[in-house]
Computed example of a mutant assay.
Amino acid sequence: MSSVHAEIPYPQEPKQPLLLLVDVSGSMTPRIIRLVSGLKLLKEEILKDDVAKRRVEVAIMAFGGNNDESGVRLVQDFTPVEKLDIDYISGLLIPGGLTPMGNALLKAIETVERRKQEYKDQGINYYRPWIWLITDGYPTDIFTPTDQLLILPGNHIIIIDDEVRKMMQEEQIFSGINNPTAYTYKDAGTVPVYLRDETISKLRQRPMADITKYCSNDLYNTVVSRLKAGIEGKKFIIWPVVVGKPGELDLVLGFMVLRDCIMSKVDPSRPPVWLEDTEQKWSAMFQWLSTSIKLTSTSKPGETQKLPDISGWAQIKVV
């Protein structure tokens, strides 16, 4: 981990802190290369602006592995963009394990608050920090289903009770194994199932499972409380992005948990967005991020900026 210098570079300039909070759980393995390319693009674009490159400071925090705070690590502390060593950082983004997102959010808040205090100690003005969350799944430390769930096409999630289980046993077909029609979920494990269209239609008539009831432990309550206080107090902004390909179960659950359990309670105006896992969409997201962070960092502190449209890379609904 890179250390923070006692003297903050360019102290005459107000600072725009950007903390990239990155999921490196096992499922992120095929996505890391696109993430690293995005980081390189972010650095290149910000360095093109003589003002932004002196004002934007970037930190990178990774979470994945153990399902507690030990699974969260500050890969790069806040530093001017020009000092980011992307090749070194990429070697530390090693995917594996679970997704301790709740613990990661708490550490991210602590990190931006600590940096703000360092600015204050040195008499440096600053803009509201951004926490840019990138994940491809659900937080395994604050989302713990006690029921077995069935995820149907169209992201319709129901509880598997005895009646549903009987229907599945009677109607499941074992053809087209390369194209499962639904998934079951329990204990952080998923199993593809192959159901006939008529069976799916019957099952879709059952009410959606209430995802929020599975987010109820002490850590979850702390995360929501800290996020809500920080956002309402205008201490930071959080941008939640869920990445994945259509039909991926982790993507669906992650999107629903972030939307229904977290963002709807702390900042309904900023729901999670879906980033389709393609090189083009990753590049477009980091291009948008670099453009937007340059806009805010070159404005007057406290001035509201109209940011570019996100439709080129983000969707507000998972398909």
Rank of each mutant, 00 (worst) to 15 (best):
M1Y: 14
P9W: 02
P9I: 01
Q12W: 00
P14Y: 02
P17L: 08
L19M: 13
V24C: 13
S25L: 02
P30Y: 08
I32M: 05
L35C: 08
G38W: 09
K40R: 15
E44C: 08
K48H: 06
K48M: 10
D49A: 04
D49F: 00
D50R: 13
D50W: 05
A52E: 03
V56Y: 01
E57R: 06
I60T: 12
F63H: 11
F63M: 04
N66T: 14
D68I: 10
E69A: 14
L74H: 12
Q76T: 15
Q76N: 12
D77A: 14
T79H: 07
E82W: 06
E82T: 11
D85K: 12
D87R: 03
I89S: 03
I89C: 10
G91D: 04
L92P: 07
L92F: 12
I94H: 05
G96S: 10
L98F: 10
N103C: 13
L105E: 09
L106M: 15
V112E: 01
Q117T: 06
Q117N: 08
Y119D: 04
K120S: 06
Y127N: 02
P129L: 09
W130P: 03
W132P: 01
L133M: 09
D136L: 07
G137Y: 07
D141E: 10
D147S: 13
D147E: 15
Q148R: 15
I151K: 14
L152N: 09
P153Y: 05
G154M: 04
N155S: 15
I158F: 03
I159G: 04
I159P: 03
V164K: 08
R165A: 12
K166T: 14
M167I: 10
Q169N: 13
S175G: 06
Y185Q: 01
D187E: 14
D187Y: 08
A188I: 10
V193H: 12
Y194L: 07
L195A: 10
S201H: 07
L203R: 00
L203I: 00
M208C: 04
T212I: 05
Y214V: 01
S216H: 12
N217C: 11
L219D: 03
N221I: 11
T222G: 06
T222P: 04
V224N: 02
R226T: 11
E232W: 05
I237S: 10
W239Q: 13
W239V: 14
V241S: 05
G244N: 02
K245W: 08
L251W: 04
V252M: 08
G254K: 05
M263G: 00
M263T: 05
S264Q: 12
S264N: 14
V266D: 00
V266K: 03
P268H: 01
P268R: 07
S269L: 05
S269I: 00
R270G: 03
R270A: 09
P271W: 06
E276R: 12
E276N: 06
D277S: 13
D277C: 06
W282C: 05
M285I: 01
F286T: 03
F286D: 00
T291D: 15
S292F: 02
I293H: 00
K294I: 14
T298K: 01
P301G: 00
G302N: 08
P308W: 02
W313P: 00
Q315M: 13
K317D: 06
V319T: 11
